Simulated assay, not measured.
Amino acid sequence: MTPPLDRPALQARLHRDGFAFVTAEHMRQLLPMPEMDDWPAFRASWNDLAPDTYLAAVGRHRSRRHATFAIEPDGTLQRQPHQPHWQSARYNSLQGDIQRWFLPIRPALAGGASMRSILQFAHALFAPMAAGVPHHWHVETHQFRIEARADEPGEPTPEGVHHDGVDYVLVLLIDRQNIESGTTTIHADDGALLGSFTLAHPLDAAMVIDARVSHGVTAVTPIDPAQPAHRDVLVVTFRATPPAATSPA
């Protein structure tokens, strides 16, 4: 068994490199797995996603659900009313500057132990790193399934190597079936490759400081073209927001 990886060591790695790959073994040490009693249902919920119709027009096969949360400086977590996902064209040349509505993550899962534990872990990791900015967070969670077909590879990042336009990103592998490749690549502003790794086992994770590095994932192809093939991930983004304005007394 590899030595434990604690949160301060992971924060130091992120500070140093701008990104980190964390194995499933270490994520099981960092997450409160015994408390995540809905994990089987959480993992199975990737079978209940809806097609991403914004990509269907260009022949790319991705399914997803989406939910938004607010996290206060003290860690208080609250799901927000369902709302569209929006990215500037500066960060997403394929689908930027449009409001994209996706089916919401089901309430039992969005409010369940697994999601809550993942978001609390991410907040405890990222919030102390954001010195000098208000620690109120706009958090978006995305369930993604990328399908690979015999005649068409699946594209986890159809927009290519990119920034997300947030402060921090966590990508957690939920499942991968009958696929090869899907290598995450990390790049400097000049395009230089800083690192690469493959999320191969459930709970393998990637974390990035979005302003410092860009990231992409290579296309996935089926090992057995006659069988279904997919890559399931949960993507969590953190963006610092100013505290709500208060009216003068």
Rank of each mutant, 00 (worst) to 15 (best):
A200C: 12
T183N: 05
F69R: 02
P222K: 06
H82Y: 09
R176I: 10
D17N: 13
H135R: 09
L172C: 07
R149S: 07
T68Q: 13
E155S: 12
F144W: 02
F21D: 03
G182D: 05
P134N: 15
A206H: 02
L10H: 04
P51V: 14
R90T: 08
R116K: 11
E25I: 00
N47F: 15
N47M: 15
L94G: 06
A122K: 06
L55M: 12
L5C: 01
Q177V: 13
M36I: 08
S247E: 14
M33Q: 14
S247F: 11
D37P: 12
L199N: 02
R100A: 08
L10S: 01
F21Y: 14
D97H: 10
R13T: 12
Q87N: 02
H123Y: 13
D38A: 10
G191Q: 07
P40E: 15
H162E: 06
G18Y: 05
M129G: 06
L125C: 09
H123S: 03
P51C: 14
I105T: 10
P228W: 04
L30N: 06
W101K: 13
A205Q: 08
T237H: 03
G59E: 06
R212T: 12
L203I: 11
L203C: 03
L199T: 08
T221L: 13
H123P: 10
V58S: 12
I118L: 03
T53Y: 11
G18L: 04
L125W: 14
L109K: 13
M1L: 09
A206I: 02
W137R: 05
E180W: 03
M27W: 08
H162N: 03
P32M: 09
E140W: 02
V208H: 08
V213W: 08
Q99H: 09
P84T: 11
G59C: 09
D164C: 02
L194S: 04
L10W: 10
V58R: 14
P225H: 11
A110G: 01
E72Q: 03
I71C: 05
F19M: 08
T157E: 05
W86K: 02
L109W: 04
L172E: 06
N47G: 15
Q80A: 10
A108L: 10
H201G: 05
A188K: 01
D48R: 15
R239V: 00
L234V: 13
P51Q: 15
V220A: 05
H162P: 01
P3S: 07
L173M: 06
P51N: 14
H136D: 11
Q177E: 04
H15G: 09
T198F: 10
P4A: 05
Q87C: 08
L94F: 13
G96H: 05
P156E: 01
R43Y: 00
P107K: 13
D232C: 07
G59V: 11
F42E: 13
H82I: 05
A226P: 04
A188C: 01
P243D: 11
T2W: 03
H142R: 15
T76C: 06
G191W: 08
T183R: 02
A56N: 02
I223D: 01
A89E: 07
A89C: 11
